[in-house]
Each structure stands twice: as structure tokens, then as C-alpha cells.
Lab assay of single mutants.
Amino acid sequence: TFEVERIVRKKIVHGNTSYLVKWKNYSSKDNTWETEDDIRTKYGDLVDDFEK
């Protein structure tokens, strides 16, 4: 199971928000862009903290 360590960046393309996710126990080269809906479902607190 993958676990988010932190959110690195945010991008908005054509009105759709995605977050660059750093995965726990993986290197930064393994970071992936994930949709806001996918990340918010399980890691809403991390998204809220990133947006502060």
C-alpha cells in the first residue's frame, strides 16, 4: 500500500487540479501527479495543510 509523505506542488490544467505527491519510503524521482479528488478522498488533511 502506498502512503503519501507530503504534497510537493500543485498544478491546474483546464480547470482540473492535480498535486505532485511524494510517497513515503520512495525517492523523489518516484513522485507522481494525482488528481485532487483521488488525494482528497484519503488524504484531505494533507491537501488542506498544503493549501494554507
Rank of each mutant, 00 (worst) to 15 (best):
N25G: 15
S18Q: 14
L46S: 05
L46G: 03
V21S: 01
Y19I: 03
V13W: 09
K42P: 03
R40E: 03
W23F: 04
I39T: 03
H14K: 13
E34D: 00
E34L: 15
K10Y: 05
K22A: 06
Y26I: 13
S28F: 11
D49W: 10
K29W: 12
G15M: 03
K52S: 10
T17W: 06
L20M: 07
N31Q: 08
T41Q: 13
T32N: 02
D37C: 10
D30T: 08
I39G: 00
T35Q: 09
D38Q: 10
K29H: 09
K52R: 13
D45E: 12
K52F: 08
V13N: 08
R6I: 09
E34Y: 10
N16R: 14
K10T: 04
E51F: 05
K42H: 09
Y43C: 05
E34G: 02
D48W: 06
Y26V: 13
K22M: 06
T32Q: 02
Y26D: 07
D49V: 10
N25D: 09
D37N: 12
D49L: 14
K10G: 03
Y19V: 01
V8T: 03
L46A: 06
R9V: 06
S28R: 06
W23N: 00
D37G: 09
I39S: 03
T35H: 10
K29Q: 12
D38F: 15
T1S: 13
L20F: 09
W33N: 00
E51T: 05
S18I: 15
W33M: 01
V47H: 14
T1A: 12
T17V: 14
S18G: 03
K10Q: 04
T35P: 12
D30Y: 15
V13Q: 09
H14W: 08
K24T: 06
R40K: 10
K42A: 12
E5Q: 05
T17D: 00
V21Y: 00
T1P: 13
Y43N: 07
D30L: 14
T41P: 11
D38G: 06
E51G: 03
V47W: 08
K10P: 01
V13I: 11
K10V: 07
T35W: 12
S18K: 12
D38H: 12
R9F: 08
E36K: 04
K24A: 07
V8E: 06
E34S: 04
V47N: 01
I12W: 04
D48K: 09
T32R: 03
D48R: 12
K24S: 05
F2A: 14
F50Y: 10
K10F: 06
V13G: 04
Y19W: 03
E36F: 07
K52I: 09
R9A: 15
D45K: 13
V8R: 02
E36A: 11
G15P: 01
R40L: 08
S18M: 15
D45A: 13
N25P: 05
T17M: 05
I39F: 07
L46I: 10
T41Y: 11
K22S: 05
T32C: 03
L46H: 05
T35R: 13
Y26W: 10
W23S: 00
S28V: 09
G15E: 03
E3V: 11
E34P: 01
D37R: 11
K11A: 09
R9Q: 10
K52M: 12
Y19Q: 00
R9L: 11
S28L: 07
Y26E: 07
H14S: 11
W33I: 00
I7F: 02
W23Q: 00
K24H: 06
T41E: 13
I39V: 10
S27P: 14
I12A: 05
E36H: 05
K11V: 07
N16P: 00
E36N: 03
E3S: 05
I39E: 01
N25Q: 06
K11L: 07
G44Q: 13
H14R: 11
D37S: 12
K24C: 07
D48P: 04
N31V: 09
R40C: 06
E36W: 07
I7M: 01
D37L: 12
K11H: 05
S18F: 15
L46V: 07
N25V: 05
F2T: 11
V21N: 00
K52C: 08
T17N: 05
V47Y: 06
T17L: 07
E5F: 04
E51Y: 05
K10I: 06
K42F: 12
E51K: 06
D48G: 06
V21R: 02
F2P: 14
I39M: 15
V47D: 01
D49Q: 13
W33A: 01
N31S: 10
G44C: 07
G44A: 14
D49G: 07
G15D: 04
S28P: 09
L20V: 01
Y43D: 04
L46K: 07
F2K: 15
L20I: 01
S28T: 09
I12H: 04
V8S: 02
R6Y: 15
H14Y: 10
D30G: 11
K29E: 12
V8F: 04
R6A: 13
K22H: 05
T32Y: 02
L46T: 04
E36Q: 06
K11N: 04
N16F: 12
V13M: 10
E3K: 04
V4Q: 03
W23A: 00
I39K: 01
D48T: 08
N16Q: 15
T32V: 02
D49N: 10
W33Q: 01
W23M: 01
D38P: 03
F50D: 01
K22Q: 10
E36P: 02
G15F: 04
H14Q: 13
H14V: 05
T17Y: 04
V47A: 07
S18H: 15
V13R: 10
